[in-house]
Design a binder for these strands. Sequence first.
DNA 1: CAGTTATTTCAGGAATTTCTGAAATAACAG
DNA 2: CTGTTATTTCAGAAATTCCTGAAATAACTG
Lengths: 189, 189
Amino acid sequence: MQLSPLLQSFVLHFGEMGSRWGINRTVGQMYALLFVANKPLNAEDISAALGFSRSNVSMGLKELDAWNLIRLKHLPGDRRDYFTTPEDVWEIVRTLVEERRKREIEPTLSMLRDILLVKPGSDEEQHAQERMREMHDLIEMLTNWYQDMQKMETERLVHLLKLGTKVYKLYEMKDRLFAAANDRPKKGA
Amino acid sequence: MQLSPLLQSFVLHFGEMGSRWGINRTVGQMYALLFVANKPLNAEDISAALGFSRSNVSMGLKELDAWNLIRLKHLPGDRRDYFTTPEDVWEIVRTLVEERRKREIEPTLSMLRDILLVKPGSDEEQHAQERMREMHDLIEMLTNWYQDMQKMETERLVHLLKLGTKVYKLYEMKDRLFAAANDRPKKGA
DNA sequence: CAGTTATTTCAGGAATTTCTGAAATAACAG
DNA sequence: CTGTTATTTCAGAAATTCCTGAAATAACTG
């Protein structure tokens, strides 16, 4: 099977991008292919379309499954495994972020917390701990924020993102209004 | 020069993390070291502390400089180059995100836009384009949102992040209030 | 059960990335 | 200009990551 040039360039680009983000190039290509495919694909399809060995495809799919990024399907009367990506692109992004949080961010926070418990033995160590504290607090703030957002349905999240900083200006306005109201003497007080 | 175990574990951890995010392990370690150091370091210091060859340090610093992640300093009466990371951790994160946006996100958006201009030659291609459109729109929305946020001063940004979804609930409340007001018949209408 | 098809595993070869030492360049001092 | 010190460059060695083919396993079928 030969990919059309249109699919080809998409697939190759995502292979490259993957490799810049710590994802194996061929796994990136496999995912790109599954993402744009208009039907579930089996390992043989992928192998043929991308020209990788069957075993490489098997390992790639295992990897993608471990990241919870693909869905296994079965076609009636066919015992091969077919795969798709989730329909919803937002779900894909959420899964990616969530997995990286679990695998990389949490261990990092935990390492930082451990080191911060050690009593510094020198000025150098004390300064290092101050820096690590700053890093810890920043990462924690961002992940807390993300987990808060994570709960929203896509619709609302999109709305909120489109508002951008506008929503904050409104918030400041509210604060000013209340401040003004509190300046006025209350009836009967 | 030998690193204290406290610094050692931080530096090694960040080397590992770097490599999972597409950053060379030794470059990650160099950055971690510069980040926690209580004074500017020169290439020789780094080389000695981490046990890398002088030339590897030179290339690593060049790389970090290309990412705009380090600052060059000079000490009076010393013609060697000394380096630090920016004081502000938020600035570091912003620079990282901004550089990746320029290097990876923008080319991806541009590739997607190009492909989306091609007239689909089959159902397969048409479906692929629909998926790419979804991806394009999502990435564009996230980067637009980020660039909006990017403009805020750190203080305000932190405040907004801490509010999380609360700010959105307030926004919805405002909408409901206005809706209620509009339901009431207007005087003289 | 034997035969067939689908999938996985994994040792080691291939490809890529990273790192080094030696040499080149640069920048200054006397 | 010569000598000294700092930095960069780069070819190839070293290390790591990736990929494959062969064999094993698994899951069905008649």
